[in-house]
Design a binder for these strands. Structure first.
Lengths: 133, 133
DNA sequence: ATATATTCCTAGTAACCCGATAGGAATATA
DNA sequence: TATATTCCTATCGGGTTACTAGGAATATAT
């Protein structure tokens, strides 16, 4: 239950990898080799991380990816959300109007509480915390 | 992210439904009608809840399902685990030996912490809490 | 200039899980 | 005996996931 897709795990491993490098930058090929991730698959992941502003990229020779923020300022939630969107145990977290039961569903608060618990944990942890674990 | 399968939401709605009834028992057809759940699909869910000891069943006419424990003594974690197994964000929660990185993976503790946070929330909430929300 | 290294873009694919349906067998009651 | 119910097995379409393939765009080095 609540298993995290491989791409998200890959994304986090990639971010940790970058954070541990002196200049916090590397090519997709380097990261892939070091972390045992399929290169082509990782490319797509890095592109996504870039679109979400977590890394920046340079194309062409001597190009690569580099962290855009200090690891201590980067919450794990931001990485998770970049890959998978917001934490949403049930679709009605966004408003009772989405509820097929017309808001007459008792468990909703329970799910909202779960979302809060998860969000809290993820928001509190930074990339630095994970890197230095 | 972390979306809960419909069957688990159905299971919880069914359990809440039972908990609110005077004698805490009903047929699958009744629950399905009240909660807007496909009957045949719910049947399989109820069977599973029974196998995990959360409800008991009687076959034949006047049969149905009934709660086996007091709602106040039944953690939401037990329902979730009945449907989806233990909370396992990553496969290596069961031991570093499962890790493809040979335990050299920094994020592991991070994921274990997430599991703990989720487990804690789910263990603390009882069916009664949700029913009375 | 040209070769090379890199990101970026688009498509495709095999496998899996999920929600749901179908049909009926077993079983208990009225 | 008729009926209501749980229980069992099989199937199916659709979506997602992880991954692969092929190349276009772009920047650097020589």
């Amino acid at each position: 239950m609540f298993s995290v897709p491989a791409r998200t795990q890959y994304a986090i491993r990639a971010m940790v990898h970058l954070a541990r490098l002196p200049d916090r930058s590397a090519t997709a090929a380097e990261i892939a080799a070091a972390e045992g991730i399929p290169v082509k698959y990782l490319e797509g992941i890095m592109t996504r991380l870039k679109l979400c502003g977590l890394v920046e990229s340079e194309r062409g020779k001597n190009g690569g990816y580099s962290l855009r923020a200090d690891p201590g300022e980067l919450s794990m939630l931001s990485i998770v959300e970049a890959m998978d969107g917001s934490v949403k145990p049930v679709s009605c977290v966004e408003g009772a109007s989405v509820c097929a039961q017309g808001g007459g569903c008792l468990p909703r608060k329970f799910w909202l509480g779960l979302k809060d618990a998860i969000d809290l944990y993820l928001k509190d942890k930074t990339l630095r915390d994970v890197t230095e674990a």
